[in-house]
């Protein structure tokens, strides 16, 4: 996203709470101390392989631009290299995470929809990566209990956990706002996927 495309938050945002939150992100992560030295981008493993330029994102936010719809926000591996190396103490990685939170609150449709499988799986079985029958039997063979001693196998505890998740409203926030009202939850078994992605295009460029 170029500077010209990115609208200013001040002009865009009608909700005073959200405007305050945006300024809070700038303040908490010390983005206003940035001197644009570029050290952050220099050590960024994702930047070497994709379009994300952390220095640019910091610059846009610093200038008050609304970057909640930047696809690049979702290309950060949260490795914390940039944050550790910033000579001005800008908490770049924390800023990315806070800006993602903001994007989710605002209903950003660029977020990777496949992530919803993790959230439904967490709600349904208390695990991001659920147990498969194959692994159940391997567990028994090597002398572990077939079912781990976990929340997924404790019906009472699981019910309470689901009540807690519902109280937090996270499923609703993500599923309704990001994926649209009434979209059915789908359960996807996350397994080893067959060979893909042997092409040469860089992540993020395909949608241009």
């Amino acid at each position: 996203m170029s500077e010209a495309e990115a609208k200013k938050v001040e002009q865009m945002e009608e909700d005073p709470y959200e405007l305050e939150q945006f300024h809070k992100i700038l303040e908490d992560s010390k983005i206003l101390s940035c001197v644009q030295c570029g050290k952050c981008t220099g050590g960024c493993p994702a930047g070497r392989q994709s379009r994300i330029r952390i220095r640019e994102l910091v610059h846009l936010a610093h200038e008050g631009h609304d970057i909640k719809d930047c696809k690049e926000l979702w290309l950060c591996t949260t490795c914390y290299n940039c944050q550790e190396r910033c000579p001005k103490g800008v908490d770049t990685t924390e800023a990315i995470i806070s800006l993602r939170n903001r994007a989710i609150r605002k209903g950003d449709h660029n977020f990777p929809e496949i992530h919803t499988t993790a959230i439904t799986s967490l709600r349904d079985q208390a695990d991001g990566f659920p147990l498969s029958p194959d692994v159940e039997s391997i567990r028994s063979v090597i002398g572990l209990p077939k079912h781990p001693h976990d929340l997924a196998h404790d019906p009472e505890g699981l019910k309470k956990f689901q009540a807690l998740m519902d109280d937090l409203g996270i499923v609703e926030l993500v599923m309704k706002k990001q994926c649209g009202e009434g979209k059915p939850w789908k359960y996807v078994d996350i397994k080893y996927k067959p060979s893909v992605a042997r092409g040469t295009k860089k992540e993020g460029e395909s949608n241009e």
Binding site: P45, A46, R48, Q49, S50, W74, L75, C76, T77, T78, C79, N81, I96, F111, P112, I114, H115, T117, A118, I190, V196, A197, G199, K201, K202, E203, G204
Partner: peptide
């Protein structure tokens, strides 16, 4: 000490980037 490329939701959300890293 660099990243494997899986973190931050990239493993599932931006698979190709994860593979490049």
């Amino acid at each position: 000490l660099s990243c494997c490329g899986a973190g931050g939701g990239v493993w599932s959300g931006a698979e190709e980037l994860g593979l490049r890293v």
